[in-house]
Nucleic acid binder design. Structure first.
Lengths: 338, 338
DNA sequence: CTGAAAGCGCTAACAA
DNA sequence: TTGTTAGCGCTTTCAG
């Protein structure tokens, strides 16, 4: 095995504790002693065994982040932000992906990494409230995203209804009358797109515009292909929308592709709004108008929640945090300026 | 703290060892004993403390993957594949990002996670051979990507020269004569784009076409914005290419955006080829022709290398693995069929 | 087949 | 200011 504190102590002719003091930058060590120990450390190439430290302290300094799919740029960007936020608190992030499967989400939330991670940030899709209520693992859990749970855990999500309404309001303001919603979940007991769908409906109702089922396009998943498929379905059944509000940017991008294949112009014939503001939406031959959640804030607050529960108030009231969001208006609703 | 083996043993009225045997599925345990212990485990909600196990065994079951940037879909997709590949060997993946900074890459390769991770898969950008030669950490290290090092570590990368040549050959075959290279690195001692640039040059030379510096567009980074900037520079200085081969898909996408802003049609006026085959390249109003490295194979082989060194042959010869690649031809060179 | 005891490397009391 | 000692929870000899 590697060199341990003991080896260094032996070499330097001091006690283990003294070496430990040096390694941990304890204040009360004479410079001479520090130098001597440091030399032994360097000569032996000593590196502290963090596993042993973790065992002793009961903490690992690792937070897990579980997202559905790293291939979705929204989650990739979010993960990057979480890694950075955690690093500022000297925490390391272990990344899991659940593929949005209830089974994997349960596994993760139930603590199959118990004792390896100090806390967990989970962005669930199919998880149910009852799954959460049966949780026995004691590591702090922070929930992310649109789904609402009646369970005692911190929850961080933007105001999805308000965000959706602002997107639809923008479309109405641009003179659109038949505004479709793309991305309701097909064949799912619960409806993960619930809040955005609700916002869409509320705003259309307020504007006196139609919001019937003929304007709702369900999808099987959350990717570009799913958005493309749903858009094709919508057109095929003659819904003839003059605008589409999609559950997320990937679906919006898939939809735009189909529109262009069918010879429909964006935004002249059909305006499109997405949700997430992934970097991809700022490129492409038509840039995408989209709801932009404050990813930095989401990441920061999620990590803060974990850190606070770990440090001070484990039994405090569950917090409900609402980071900000913006509507970023681009060519897919505004048209292109030359 | 939580319940430990001792608590379970006490409850079941057996020794610690017996409980351990049950937990670890030891063969020689009587069914009756097993049942009794299992009941105590369930009643107490016991979960093994992996940290302690790790300390004892000297292994953690964690592999680190360090990539430059999770926001680049290529790395996000690759990370997903690595996580899956690792899971098949019962390994967990800890994700780091280096931002492509030499300093962070050194930190990671030097083992600042020593004893927490069993092995490391690193995709370096700025790291130098000498940094690698000075490495003292003993965890297996596997290198990924285009950079070549004269250091005794496993290295996994597709044949970048051949891949680049196939891309350029395709452009030549489509009748293009002034084929620019986009993405040489500006202000960098070494040239990370070296091999792809070399492939571009070789193929053009073989075809008797120009490959001078006027056709090379340097970039400051690896993102869409960098590609856009470089494309704009190229056009502004009157290089007038009829095709562009970009270092990666993101740069190609940024370039296409600029072409479209300037009123140039893809591929009629300028054909574009990328590198990586990220999912985004299959969407957009013009899909992107690109070199597709076999990400699944890269991930699998990287994990295999780590696992093998961990298991059997730590001192074996460094391996040089070349996963496959394909040229995927799409609209950005072929044009659009209706 | 099961029990007792040692020790992985570290930190935190407590002593000196 | 530095040394001694007792575990953190687990696996692993070695006996029984």
């Amino acid at each position: 095995m590697g060199v341990s504190l003991k080896d260094v102590a032996l070499r330097a002719g001091v006690s283990i504790k003294t070496v430990s003091n040096v390694v941990n930058d304890y204040p009360h060590v004479t410079p001479a002693m520090r130098a001597r120990v440091q030399q032994a450390i360097d000569e032996l190439g000593y590196r502290p065994n963090l596993t042993a430290r973790h065992l002793r302290k009961g903490r690992t300094g690792i937070i897990a982040l579980a997202v559905p799919e790293l291939g979705n740029p929204y989650f990739a960007e979010l993960a990057g932000a979480v890694i950075d936020a955690a690093a500022r608190h000297d925490y390391t992030v272990l990344l899991d992906h659940t593929a949005g499967l209830r089974e994997k989400e349960m596994l993760v939330s139930q603590g199959f990494r118990a004792h390896v991670i100090d806390g967990l940030i989970l962005s669930p899709i199919e998880l149910e409230t009852e799954d959460l209520l049966g949780r026995t693992d004691t590591a702090p859990l922070v929930l992310l995203g649109e789904r609402e749970y009646d369970a005692p855990y911190d929850h961080i999500a933007i105001d999805n209804v308000a965000a959706a309404r602002s997107a639809v309001r923008h479309l109405v303001g641009m003179g659109r009358r038949r505004i479709a919603f793309l991305g309701a979940r097909r064949e799912s007991a619960r409806q993960p797109a619930h809040l955005r769908l609700q916002g869409w409906r509320e705003e259309l109702a307020a504007a006196g515009l139609p919001y019937g089922d003929e304007l709702v396009a369900p999808t099987g998943g959350y990717g570009r292909a799913d958005g493309a498929q749903a858009m094709a379905d919508l057109l095929d059944r003659g819904a003839a929308p003059d605008a589409v509000f999609a559950y997320n940017d990937l679906q919006a991008i898939g939809a735009m592709r189909v529109l262009s294949e069918r010879g429909l112009r964006v935004p002249e014939d059909v305006a499109v709004v997405g949700f997430d503001d992934i970097e991809e939406s700022r490129y492409g031959s038509i840039t995408l108008t989209t709801v932009s959640p404050d990813k930095q804030a989401i990441a920061r607050q999620a990590v803060d929640c974990v850190v606070q529960r770990l440090a001070g108030s484990p039994g405090a009231e569950p917090r409900r945090v609402r980071p900000g969001h913006d509507l970023v208006v681009r060519e897919s609703t505004l048209g292109r300026h030359r």
